[in-house]
């Protein structure tokens, strides 16, 4: 997103969210939010700012720093539609990148499914492969591996050779 649009968005978000919720804005525009302010931020971005399309939910394992990170990529679909129809979009199109960090010991992030149902399976995938719990998810269970599986393979300390042999 362009610098000026991002600055405007950041200022509006700081006003809308509680003090200290917006922890950091990185150089490329990604915004780090406190986990307990994620739902407020999501509601604001969807309803007030028009970012109605959650494209991607990713889990990243920062093992050296002892943290898990969940990254959300948001776009404005209805505004993007205006471009396709030949009109002026009248606002930023995205991406808005939200990042949430939680400690590795007991990773739990509020689920954004009530705001963007597109996270329904993507959060299940992050839970399955990384082990991050999503509180408030309607149906949090494994999606790729079988239910009896106990490990979380995408973690940096999981090695198939050690656990399964050869």
């Amino acid at each position: 997103m362009a610098g000026a649009e991002l600055e405007g968005l950041r200022a509006r978000m700081e006003k809308a969210l509680p003090q200290g919720a917006l922890q950091e804005v990185q150089a490329d525009g990604a915004m780090q939010i406190r986990p307990n302010a994620l739902l407020r931020a999501g509601q604001f971005l969807r309803d007030q700012e028009g970012f109605d399309y959650l494209s991607n939910v990713t889990g990243v394992d920062w093992i050296e720093q002892g943290q898990f990170e969940v990254v959300y990529h948001l776009y404005a679909m209805r505004r993007g539609e205006r471009i396709v129809l030949g009109k002026d979009p009248d606002g930023p199109l995205g991406p808005v990148v939200l990042k949430v960090r939680v400690p590795r010991g007991d990773p739990a992030v509020p689920s954004v499914v009530p705001i963007w149902p597109s996270a329904l399976w993507q959060e299940r995938e992050v839970y399955d492969l990384m082990g991050i719990r999503f509180d408030g998810h309607p149906d949090l269970k494994r999606i790729y591996l079988w239910d009896e599986f106990e490990d979380h393979p995408l973690r940096k300390d999981y090695s198939p050779e050690e656990v399964q042999g050869e």
Partner: peptide, 13 residues
């Protein structure tokens, strides 16, 4: 981290 945002996965939801 190498992550694929697969359209079929989300379209199936």
């Amino acid at each position: 981290r190498w992550r694929v945002r697969a359209p079929s996965f989300v379209n199936l939801t």
